[in-house]
Write a protein that binds this DNA or RNA. Structure first.
Lengths: 198, 198
DNA sequence: GATAACTCAAACATTGATGTTCAAGTTGCA
DNA sequence: TGCAACTTGAACATCAATGTTTGAGTTATC
């Protein structure tokens, strides 16, 4: 569940804690756009010396683990707010909206994590959101609201691909995040809709 | 159109030409899976010494330019074989099938190219296939066969995202290329289908 | 079969990012 | 106020990938 080893609760000075948070924040922002962003870039973005960064995080991997943990914590918090009961199409709308906010915020962070962290940790990290989506898809299929003539895994990766593609398109400036959210909803629902007997 | 400066027609020895071709081939294969593959890896994959590679290509950028050129040449040849006349949905099927073969073969090569080549060159390189797809989409929309309540650019990037996602899924071993082709067709057509008055 | 073209391993130079050390300067906090 | 905690730039070590050079060995081609 948790990628970084939890800090021993040494009481740090207030400014030190602020800096650590600023670094994680800056890293989240930069890595979302460029998974290869250097630690020097991240330190600069955080308004902090490079040495200070190393004072807080032993290595690139340690920092990324911290970023992933923070991201996962917020993600779980936001996703678990989504009410999974009710009409599957409506639930999918809500789940997509929450997923889009997260994807847009974290962007390519997954790729950064894949390069620096053991794949087991990461796979486990993504397991929960995927399971959530899978459960919803299965329920929607049983209810005849989603098509079931494609593999579940395909539908899930397609949804992820659409989300990540939207993230890149927004970074390219092609759409606003809000418009992208609407397009995602329309597109995913079209993919999932049971084929009308043509 | 052409990324690499064309070779002065110095007559090279047969084995040298073979090696150059083997290197481009190996690079195409490796870069399709890992856009960060090192030149040492590529040389090994080509069954050639690292120095030999540098004998044929000045730099990583030069090699990638050659790979892109070869890929583009084959791509154009295969895509221009697709008959663009006729029922838009049928044409889309054919165009998708051809695009899938190319995507599966070239995979992440685009990303490798983006890191090593000037973005102008690359943008121009991708212009033609995108224009082809755009023309077809516009015709299908006019004919009422494709939905026109989303931006064209969104539909195009979505199609590209689905193709690339399928490529990754196949590399992960989740589907065979053939099955992926069918899934791509069904998924893209679902995305493009005009919404039925619900 | 002579020769120019080509290959290749080993060894070196360079570059850019990572990570470390140090000594001097600030600042939160008791 | 004073001190430990914290920050910082500069300088250094390391590592991996990119390129380069050399010199000896193959081989296509004339």
């Amino acid at each position: 569940m948790c990628v970084a080893t939890p800090e021993p609760n040494t009481t740090k000075r207030a400014d030190a804690r602020m800096n650590a948070a600023a670094i994680v924040d800056a890293a989240t922002r930069l890595l979302a756009r460029d998974p290869d962003a250097s630690l020097a870039d991240i330190a600069r973005e955080a308004g902090v010396g490079r040495v200070t960064l190393y004072g807080h995080f032993d290595s690139r991997a340690t920092l990324i683990a911290a970023v992933v943990d923070a991201a996962m914590a917020r993600a779980e918090s936001e996703l678990s707010d989504v009410d999974l009961d009710g009409e599957p199409v409506e639930v999918m709308r809500r789940l997509l909206a929450a997923s889009w906010r997260l994807t847009h915020r974290h962007g390519a962070l997954v790729q950064a994590a894949e390069k620096s962290l053991s794949s087991e940790d990461l796979h486990e990290a993504h397991l929960e959101p995927i399971a959530r989506m899978r459960t919803l898809l299965e329920r929607g299929r049983s209810a005849g609201r989603f098509r079931d003539d494609m593999p579940l895994a395909w539908q899930i990766t397609t949804i992820q691909d659409i989300l990540h593609g939207a993230s890149r398109a927004v970074y390219r400036g092609e759409h606003t995040p809000d418009v992208a959210g609407e397009l995602i909803e329309a597109t995913v629902l079209a993919v999932l809709a049971p084929p009308t007997g043509e």
